[in-house]
Design a protein around this nucleic acid. Structure first.
Length: 579
DNA sequence: GCCGTTTTCGGCCCGACTGTTTTCAGTCG
């Protein structure tokens, strides 16, 4: 994973250079190289040894040398040199919103301010107003910015952001001046966490929309307010940016406001090479300034000779090349999903009955739900002893006998014990339709042991799916250390599926890991880990991760029909256990 | 610092808002 270390160094270098007021394009080159390295999944040592580093996008002769230098010495002299020139800690100043490199440099050089605390003291003592271009208002804004940093700019997970965005949109839709409305930004791209919420409105009366927005119950404080762009802070401390454009520009504005920034830069570069200009108002021919597109987002891409690109792909991770070559994935959609795995009920720690879950699954158009309550060692979750599991199986069999067109699968979420063995004997697992293996204990065993544990479970012929493979809970628990590449290889070799857990705090595998798993030929499954009826609808969050991982229906276990799913499970069981 | 179906040098995406400016720099997305 050397590429991540190098990416971090390049990224730091970009920040340092920015602080120094270096050439912006040089800074961007470091940022771009860092981003590309971050998503590189090959063998960096080998590419370096074969002298092919410059084949990587954004890596030229200079950065290739720096990578080689790091691979052989563990440091990059140029980064060390720049570090020595800059007072330690000042980069933290850049975290204050509204405070950029120019101001940070001014503060350090003129007032010797090196930390956010020193900055706060200086602002309170009105020492900043002695600086050129500084007056009371700027001092005030810096103090507000510090307050935001200190409160902790924690990003929301999708489970918080999505309902808030929907409530805001419902509120704004009450205004007659609003003709179209959409989410944009990282929420529309379905990133796992969201910083600020971005909303876009089409209207011919922007002032009325802005009025409604800044005076709504969601607006506790107005951060910025213009005719086309305003920002508010909600009572929960969430920043919401609203952009209003004429209906003729809605598509172009949606494209622009959805981002990512890196994707947009690429799109605009592509436009320039065709004598075109893209901004939030449309696509224009540079020479004549004639507008060629703007009302619909798809027209923006079409005018540049591209098919529409799904928002989840817009991260400058090769989607533009794929689009040009006509090789965009046919991303999985909600209607492709035929069922959900990993469902809990009152039989262990869920809050709804088998009957209620079956009804809810059927109502969502599914063919099947795998009921997977906990195994006995997970006492806190009322894990079921074998006898109780068999009672549940009998009940499910009886229910299935009475229904047509929908089936509950007899499953279990079985703990993978610390030695890699399963919490039910194989003879019991063999009675089940679907077995989910999970680690819930012993997170501190270390990477080697945890990896061995997961691989041992995958070698069990009855284990169909590994749930939440890294165990992370965003904001609560870091992922446990595990060699994912080894896990992917074992998953493919043993024909075991890996879960994209759709619970918004988990989203585990995450998008980048799921993408690597897919590239490694692993079958994935999105499951909600539902403990109540409503949570079945969290499928959409897991699908967001799958789409960000370029997953097509054929790569997702729960897009199989019931018949084909059962055959898939049986095929692994028919193979003799791997060695 | 990267990159090339105009180019190996001279470009590199584009615009809104704020504060303080009287024409713009800084910051943000």
């Amino acid at each position: 994973m050397k590429q991540h270390e190098i990416a971090a160094l390049f990224s730091e270098m970009a920040d340092l250079l920015e602080y120094q007021g270096e050439n912006l394009f040089r800074i961007r080159a470091y940022r771009r190289a860092a981003q590309n390295l971050e998503s590189f999944s090959g063998d960096l040592d080998r590419v370096s040894a074969e002298d092919r580093l410059t084949e990587l996008s954004g890596i030229g002769a200079d950065l290739a040398n720096k990578i080689t230098e790091y691979l052989s010495t563990g440091t990059i002299a140029a980064v060390e040199a720049v570090r020595r020139r800059i007072p330690p800690g000042v980069l933290a100043l850049l975290e204050v919103p509204g405070l950029g490199p120019k101001t940070a440099k001014l503060l350090t050089e003129r007032l010797r301010i090196k930390t956010i605390d020193e900055l706060e003291d200086a602002a309170k003592a009105h020492r900043l107003s002695r600086l050129p271009g500084f007056q009371a208002k700027k001092e005030e804004n810096i103090l507000k910015g510090i307050a935001i940093v200190k409160r902790g700019r924690e990003r929301m997970h999708l489970g918080v952001a999505m309902p808030l965005a929907n409530a805001l949109m419902t509120c704004l839709e009450q205004t007659p001046a609003v003709t179209r409305i959409s989410t944009a930004g990282s929420l529309r791209r379905m990133r796992e966490t969201i910083g600020d919420l971005d909303l876009l409105v089409a209207s011919s009366h922007p002032a009325r929309v802005m009025e409604a927005f800044t005076h709504s119950p969601f607006s506790q404080r107005v951060l910025a307010s213009g005719t086309t762009k305003s920002s508010i802070l909600t009572p929960e401390g969430v920043q919401v940016d609203l952009r209003v454009v004429e209906p003729d520009s809605f598509g172009a504005a949606l494209q622009y406001f959805t981002g990512s920034k890196e994707h947009n830069v690429r799109v605009r570069e592509l436009a320039v090479r065709q004598g075109l200009k893209v901004n939030e108002y449309g696509v224009f021919r540079v020479k004549t300034n004639r507008r060629l597109a703007g009302r619909e987002e798809a027209d923006v891409y079409k005018t540049l000779g591209l098919p529409w690109i799904a928002p989840e792909l817009r991260e400058d991770q090769g989607e533009l090349d794929a689009a040009k070559a006509g090789r965009l994935p046919q991303l999985v959609e909600r209607n492709d999903v035929r069922g959900d795995f990993h469902i809990h009920t009152v039989w262990s720690d869920g809050s709804d009955t088998l009957e209620a879950m079956a009804k809810a699954g059927s109502a969502r158009g599914y063919q099947y739900l795998a009921i997977c309550d906990h195994s006995p060692s997970l006492k806190v979750a009322h894990g079921m002893p074998v006898a109780r599991l068999r009672q549940q199986m009998a009940k499910i069999r009886a229910m299935n006998a009475r229904t047509k067109g929908f089936r509950l699968l007899m499953g279990a979420e079985v703990d993978i014990l610390s030695d890699g063995s399963m919490d039910y004997p194989d003879a019991v697992l063999a009675e089940l339709d679907f077995v989910v293996g999970s680690i819930h204990t012993g997170f501190t065993q270390g990477e080697a042991a945890l990896t061995r544990r997961l691989i041992a479970a995958m070698r069990n012929p009855y284990v169909t799916l590994i749930a939440h493979p890294t165990g992370r809970l965003m904001g609560q628990r870091e992922p446990y250390p595990v060699d994912l590449e080894a896990v992917f290889k074992a998953a493919r070799d043993t024909q075991t599926a890996l879960e994209i857990n759709a619970y918004p705090r988990r989203l585990d595998l995450c998008d980048t890991a799921a993408k690597r798993a897919r590239e490694a030929g692993v079958m994935l499954a999105v499951s909600t880990d539902s403990h109540s009826l409503d949570q079945l609808d969290q499928m959409v969050f897991g699908l967001g991760v799958a789409r960000r991982a370029w997953v097509e229906p054929a790569q997702l276990l729960n897009c199989l029909t019931l018949d084909r799913l059962l055959k898939w499970v049986a095929r692994k069981r028919a193979r003799s256990p791997s060695t």
